[in-house]
Amino acid sequence: MSGAAYRVSAAAGRARGRDEGPVQETGEVMGSRRVGPYTLLDVVAPHVAVRVLPGQFVSVAVDGPETLLRRPFSVSGISGAPAGGGIEIVFETLGPGTVWLAGRDRHDAVDVVGPLGRPFTAPPEPAPCLLVGGGYGAAPLVLLGRTLRERGLRVDFLLGAATQSRLLGVMDAKRIAGTTTVTTEDGSAGRAGIVTDAMEDVLDANGSGAVYACGPMPMLAAVSEVAAGRGVPVQVAVEESMACGVGVCWSCVVPYRRDDGVANVRACLDGPVLDGARVDWPTLRTWWAGGAQSPELTP
């Protein structure tokens, strides 16, 4: 109820919303390119670009056959900011919505809502930071790494994927990081295995005092447990099936230990960045296995 009235932009990029928080903006595609099996899309959306923080996401309207809902993407980069700024998103074409989006040409309009959700936050005490990414889940970590470096913090990367072509952001990471460690499950690049096989060594070698992770949920569970086992603060950007992205549909919940009990919190509003030590991974694993009913939770 406070703040400015409903507004629109006088500029070409039409944005609606308030002076702070998320807006709905008509963005303009500046280009797209293939990055291995992924598509990187650069969209000029100045109101979103100037507000977005590492770890936040946008939801993009798509127009594939019979599609209805927006698609959420974490922001992987900012281009041309602050004036005339664009956002970069990275995705894999897995269904009609992402196929449609990958087919957008330069200067096509796309409808963007964002920035959404809570961003990563700086470590409570200055400490070397380890950024752990899995597959295209590494997308928001380069942006985060740059921001942490601007704060004078040491940054190390640990990036994993099933195979070399599915790694994302390795070159960007090398530009930012003290060290960049790579794992692939098939051994086609770096160390053979998964990120948590290398994580203890990387933490020891760099004296990491904070862990940030983004990638598949089972990876986030394993990374959180390694970090929490060593008493290292860990922030994870979670992923969950999402209808609205703005906190009203209650689809994207994650069981989370709050001070008053375990609650199903919304990934889109309370997350996507959550304290990995507080996510109730054992309950989530029963959900992933299927068939388990929800435990008694505080809403």
């Binding site: 209808a243 209650w250 689809s251 959900w287």
Partner: peptide, 25 residues
């Protein structure tokens, strides 16, 4: 108070969506 159902709670379908939230409130 209700904690609701496990995820996935939502599935997009042709020109629609299915939800099973479990009256979380």
């Amino acid at each position: 108070p209700r904690g609701g159902l496990p995820t996935p709670r939502m599935a997009e379908t042709p020109s629609g969506m299915l939800n099973a939230i479990g009256l979380q409130n």
